[in-house]
């Protein structure tokens, strides 16, 4: 089973994300800020990270930079999931090594589409229009 670390300071968002990701077949670990997430990653790297931008202590952007410098830290697919919905933020995230980007609000369909995009899940069986 693939693992996904959900990093968001809102417990509500973490709960929604957990439900969606479990439905998509992931085992889920949660962190409420970048610092805690980094701590978890130094112990064990997940396959995927769903990452908020604005968080107290260490924000998502900062976390991503540090993650990518960890041994093996280029491995996890990082998908931002944030209300920062402008081109500047998106470009910065991609330059820092993000693999995909979700603009909140999000739903299962968007998460599935984006995870499919980066090869974390297989294409869902083709549904007709």
């Amino acid at each position: 089973m693939k693992s996904c670390l959900v990093v968001d300071d809102s417990s509500v968002v973490r709960k929604i994300a957990r439900r969606i990701l479990e439905e998509l077949g992931f085992s889920v670990v949660e962190a409420e800020d970048g610092e805690r997430a980094l701590e978890l990653c130094t112990k064990s790297l997940p396959d995927a990270i769903l990452l908020d931008w604005n968080m107290p202590v260490m924000d998502g952007y900062d976390f991503l930079g540090r993650l990518r410098r960890l041994p093996g830290g280029e491995g996890p697919k990082v998908v931002f999931c944030t209300t920062e919905n402008d081109i500047d933020h998106i470009s910065r995230a991609l330059n820092a090594g993000a693999n995909e980007y979700i603009m909140k609000p999000f739903d299962k369909e968007i998460v599935a589409a984006k995870f499919q995009e980066v090869g974390l899940i297989q294409a869902l069986s083709a549904e007709s229009a």
């Binding site: 919905n85 402008d86 081109i87 998106i90 470009s91 991609l94 995909e100 980007y101 979700i102 603009m103 999000f106 369909e109 968007i110 589409a113 984006k114 995009e117």
Partner: peptide, 20 residues
């Protein structure tokens, strides 16, 4: 809409070929 550009469109292509 934001929803439509997140269905099937890789983020790199959004950045490259769209404007807000």
């Amino acid at each position: 809409s934001q929803f439509e550009v997140q269905r099937g469109l890789p983020i790199q292509l959004l950045v490259k070929y769209f404007k807000q």
